[in-house]
Design a binder for these strands. Structure first.
Lengths: 332, 332
DNA sequence: CAGCATTTTGCAACAGGTTGCAAAACGCGC
DNA sequence: GCGCGTTTTGCAACCTGTTGCAAAATGCTG
């Protein structure tokens, strides 16, 4: 049914090789042949079959895009950025949703079956070891948004989470808060430990120690239930650093529901700076991850990894910045 | 490098065909051969190469998932549902982001190059004609969330938008609103006209006519600017039906910014019922689209389309329901 | 125009599978 | 053990492109 190389060759009166070479950048074809082939191809509406050519070239331009963050609106922004960046790089994202999948290793075999050129893991809750599996299978991989300081050596790009924790602590202290809390994302998330660490060390240098709680997921509900519990068990805390904006929103709604006003009675600072954080009714003071840069860098790294498989996996840390809105009281 | 059919055949002491047949459901292999092959395959860690087999079978299990709604959080829920449903059906989503792409037709050629088995268009702003292009190219296609009553005949699944408009009008009237407005999504969106139509006819039967406005996109900002303008030009309107939840949120923030209280001074009803609509600080009264069913049906239709390409494209309309929260005053 | 270097071309093998067909093996009744 | 119908098996061709290699064509110099 569809037009093949053969058809075009026949039509143009040349060999299959000539046609193939016309569509292979850098191959040796005379201008005359090229013209004939292109004319024939156009007439017939020919498109080379990527899959067939992948057989010999070993390249599919397919990239596995793996995530399990489908309840956190921030990741819609991330997917938007990733798909655009990949498209610009002429790479095609094969999207894998690991939210419900217990058996993550199956995704490896699936991606191998499709001969993907590389894999991007966009998640902070998938363990770094997960990314390593691809690396060990000889597949270029980069882990975005999932840095942990003690993770194995796969390429990754993220903010410096220790630094983020530090920044949160500095900010809270500067605003005069002394009884502070840490409401982290899932305890097993790669990033949580570093954030807590940075937060703790900075507080310690002021002789303070945080109340520590964890939400069970990066979601509104998880933030809400964790904060409802926390307000019970540690009512004295007057400012919380939340490991994620959506958790922060859930937490704030929990606080409001218990009659606490923000920021008059209790302050909140989030992390991510998703678009929604700027909405009037949210107006969340938060630490911004440079999502655009993280994504651009990740795609760059994956391209390098594809072009130069022997290369050492690179790890890049990007800086984060404070975005001041209305959920923390002003500097005294 | 990777293990091939050949390797397994050699190892198991059988022919290539025997190995191939072992991995082809329904093919004729004796239990003994199958056992030998499976053992050998396991030892070597063999996985069939889908791409190679696609050459002869013409099947890739790849499905193009096309959208341009990457700023509306509702669509993260949609992507979550789609990826899961597709995965369950053993289909792989090749994700295409058309947000920035002016030349939509390029996606057709790209998807053809990858030999996708089918295409799902998940968008209300891509014109029905866009879906038709795939249909005309002989590719099974279903258009989800983009029904328009006068669209060409491609398979599609959606709520009955006329009915949704009707339901919104009935609800507003029942609550005693008489000066009502319609703040639609983009004017060219497939669904907008039907919604307005249903809304209008029901109002007309009560001798009323709505103020009509359109947002330029399905986004918070678009809703906000449209409502800021509308509150200026039609301050007398005391309840708005918004063509989308996120537009409604932007609109409500605009109203609040101008000092109007919700629902005391002005009421809002949205459409979609995204998870976020239930958040305390939003608590949006809205019309729920049965997203789960729309997705499940779409995936079903695409499977049918793949299995039985000659089949007539089906069109299914699902019912929507009112979810009452706090942005409309109670029944008098 | 011959002679030589360079570029272009087609052939055939190959990538990793699938499948129609005929031959081989099997199962079973007698 | 034989004959017959079924099932299983392997061969070889094929799916759509790519590529090494040698032959053919071209360009250039003298």
């Amino acid at each position: 049914m569809p037009i093949t190389l053969q058809d075009v060759a026949l039509r143009a009166g040349v060999s299959k090789s000539a046609v193939s070479r016309t569509f292979t950048p850098g191959a040796s074809v005379s201008a005359k042949t090229r013209a004939k082939v292109e004319a024939a191809a156009k007439e017939l509406g020919y498109m080379p079959n990527v899959l067939a050519s992948s057989l010999t070239t070993g390249r599919t331009a397919l990239v596995g895009l793996i995530s399990n963050n489908f309840t956190n609106p921030y990741f819609l922004e991330i997917f938007d950025l990733f798909t655009r960046a990949l498209q610009k790089a002429e790479l095609r994202p094969l999207l894998i949703n690991l939210s419900a999948e217990e058996d993550a290793s199956r995704s490896l075999s699936m991606l191998r079956q499709y001969n993907v050129d590389g894999v991007i893991v966009a998640s902070s809750t998938l363990p770094p070891e997960f990314a390593k599996v691809f690396h060990d299978a000889g597949l270029p991989v980069v882990h975005a948004f999932g840095w942990s300081s003690e993770a194995p050596q796969t390429a990754r790009v993220s903010i410096d989470n220790t630094e983020a924790g530090h920044l949160a602590a500095v900010t809270l202290i500067e605003r005069g808060y002394r009884q502070v809390g840490f409401l982290g994302g899932p305890q097993n998330a790669a990033t949580t430990a570093d954030r807590l660490n940075g937060f703790r060390t900075e507080l310690a240098s002021h002789g303070l120690a945080p109340e520590v709680q964890f939400a069970t997921a990066y979601s509104y509900e998880a933030g809400r239930v964790a904060m409802t519990r926390a307000l019970e068990s540690a009512p004295e805390v007057d400012a919380w650093f939340c490991g994620d904006d959506v958790i922060a929103i859930g937490a704030m709604d929990a606080a409001n529901a218990l009659g606490r006003r923000i920021p008059a009675d209790i302050g909140f600072i989030g992390l991510n700076d998703m678009n929604m954080a700027a909405w009037d009714r949210i107006a969340l003071t938060t630490i911004r991850q440079p999502a655009q840069q993280i994504v651009a860098t990740s795609v760059d790294l994956i391209r390098q990894g594809i072009a130069e498989p022997a290369m050492e996996p690179q790890m890049v840390l990007l800086p984060c910045t404070l975005i001041d809105r209305k959920t923390l009281r002003a500097k005294p």
